[in-house]
Each structure stands twice: as structure tokens, then as C-alpha cells.
């Protein structure tokens, strides 16, 4: 058990340290790398409490896809290092917004932590947690049966976000030559090559 505790503190110290580094480090790239470290250590914590499915999905979705896109964007935009510190100067305009968000998150955390005490009353499926089937099976049993509506709703919300992002950035370009694979494949010598009789000193006009 003591080993378990040591590992717990190991991962949680890394998680807290790296999440502090995300907001304090000057270079944006380093922030993203620390964010990745944070995700990984939180994933390890999930695995330690037996939520192996959640831990792995966190790794696959957040580290494998979302953070790659973050890194991509940060590298492409070539964001310069921030000269002034994060709490003084022009950046301080972000503080009111940040405060509102963080107070909301704090309230939510309080609700969750408070609710944990009464979880026997709150969670109808808490009987499942007790049995000896694996975490993944438990999720599978309730995800598509009891919580199908919420699951689908989350999917629709994500789809809407995706469509919205595409709609915002979409612009139709005119005068662009597009390749049609069907036309390319179905070309043959008969319709691609044309023989022309060229009169001398007159040439021939080829339109492209």
C-alpha cells in the first residue's frame, strides 16, 4: 500500500507542477509540452484508481490527438515568447475573465467533492462499482443503455462545434483548378492525343 501512496504522490506532484508550468512558462511551446506531461500524469492517476479505460482514452484523445493539434497550431503561428510576466502589463486584461472561469470551476469542484460524500444516494449505478467486473465492461453496460441520451447529446454537441468551426473558416475560392480522379483515370490515348495537320508558315492554335 505504501508503494501505491508513493506512486500517487509522484504522479500528482508531477501533475500539479506541470499544470503550474503551463500557465507560467514564457515560451508557448514549453507550455504545450507541460500540458502533455500533465495529461499523461493525470492519465496515470486514473489508471491507479482503477479507471483504466478512462486513463487510456485520456491518453489517446487528449495526448494523441488534441495536444498534437495544439502543438501544430503553436508551431505554425510561431508565437513569440512573452516578454512581460503573466500577471502584470497588458495581459492583465485577461484576469477578470480568468477569475470568473476559475470561480465557476471551483464551485463545480466543491459540488463534486461535497456530492462524493452522498454518492450512495446520488449514483443509482453505484452498485456496479462494487462488483468484480472490469471498469471497461461497467462503462459499456451503462453507456449505451442508461445514458444513451446524454451520450448522443454529447456527440451532437461535438458535431455542432465541428460544423461551426468549418463554417467559420470556410471560404469558396474561385478560379481554382480542381483535379477529378475519375477524369484522370479514364483518360486514354484516343481522347487525350489529337493529331493536327500543320500548314507550313502558318502554325496551329492550340487552346489549353
Amino acid at each position: 500500500m505504501i508503494v501505491h501512496t508513493i506512486f500517487f504522490y509522484f504522479f500528482s506532484v508531477i501533475a500539479i507542477f506541470s499544470s503550474l508550468m503551463v500557465i507560467t512558462s514564457r515560451s508557448t511551446i514549453n507550455s504545450v509540452f507541460f500540458l502533455i506531461l500533465d495529461f499523461i500524469s493525470v492519465g496515470c492517476l486514473f489508471i491507479m484508481v482503477g479507471a483504466e479505460f478512462l486513463g487510456m482514452i485520456l491518453l489517446i484523445v487528449y495526448v494523441g490527438a488534441v495536444a498534437v493539434l495544439f502543438l501544430f497550431v503553436v508551431m505554425m503561428l510561431n508565437v513569440a515568447e512573452q516578454k512581460q510576466s503573466w500577471f502584470i502589463g497588458r495581459k492583465s486584461t485577461h484576469i477578470p475573465t480568468g477569475l470568473i472561469v476559475s470561480v465557476l470551476i471551483l464551485l463545480e469542484l466543491l459540488v463534486v467533492v461535497g456530492g462524493w460524500k452522498y454518492k450512495q444516494d446520488l449514483m443509482s449505478s453505484s452498485t456496479l462499482v462494487m462488483s468484480n467486473i472490469s471498469n471497461t465492461h461497467q462503462l459499456g453496460l451503462v453507456m449505451y443503455t442508461d445514458y444513451i441520451l446524454y451520450f448522443q447529446l454529447a456527440g451532437v454537441v461535438l458535431l455542432l462545434a465541428m460544423i461551426g468551426a468549418i463554417l467559420l473558416t470556410f471560404r469558396e475560392r474561385v478560379g481554382v483548378k480542381k483535379q477529378s480522379y475519375l477524369n484522370q483515370i479514364s483518360r486514354n490515348p484516343a481522347n487525350a492525343v489529337e493529331l493536327k495537320e500543320v500548314e507550313s508558315f502558318k502554325g496551329v492554335k492550340i487552346d489549353d
Binding site: 487510456m56 489517446i60 495526448v63 471497461t136
Partner: peptide, 15 residues
């Protein structure tokens, strides 16, 4: 228990 997810996660970190 989640061997295949582990494999998938590690191979997606390869990038």
C-alpha cells in the same frame, strides 16, 4: 485488461 487501448495510445504518441 485494456491491452489494445494501450497499444493504440502508445502508437498515437509516436507522432
Amino acid at each position: 485488461n485494456v491491452g489494445i487501448l494501450y497499444l493504440f495510445a502508445v502508437s498515437s504518441l509516436g507522432v
